[in-house]
Design a protein around this nucleic acid. Structure first.
Lengths: 68, 68
DNA sequence: ACTTAATGTCAAGTTTATTTTACATTAAGT
DNA sequence: ACTTAATGTAAAATAAACTTGACATTAAGT
């Protein structure tokens, strides 16, 4: 799965730590997700959508490797 | 997190087993998600969005208990 | 009442997300 | 060059997602 977290954070002028705080996870979790190290839960994705003010699909998207 | 999976399945006329097959998980996983037993990964949510032809937010949504 | 498809559920096991702590690296400002 | 904020990364521990297999319950049709 690909993501545009860095860009969305930049738009809202948020550090990884600030975003982590806003959605209630650790800073390392945000970093790992942003780096594509693992896939967040849907609750996390929805919380981010709330913070960024746009739908999940605009910053998380399926890639070839995700297709069955 | 709440969901409208049962309704979306009905619209597409899909059984839990068929949906499971389409997105590459077990039938029990679909059942558990539908029953709110656990929260799926964002990849799963995006795959469902693809099957249902609508954004994630239309069938998964935050509830009071999800708010920090 | 019988059959069958669909759904619900449970237990045990594996994999993956997430936390905490801690330290290294990068970027920016002064 | 120095300081500080931000980011990257890693190891160990815990929690949660997901699988498989198996069985119980519900719904619908005949």
């Amino acid at each position: 799965m690909g993501n545009r977290l860095k860009v969305e954070r930049a738009i809202k002028d948020l550090t990884q730590a600030q975003l982590a705080d806003l959605i209630g996870v650790s800073r390392q979790t945000i970093n790992a997700i942003e780096k594509g190290k693992y896939v967040p839960s849907t609750v996390l994705a929805l919380k981010m959508a709330k913070v960024f003010g746009k739908p999940v699909e605009e910053f998380f998207f399926l890639e070839d490797e995700d297709l069955d």
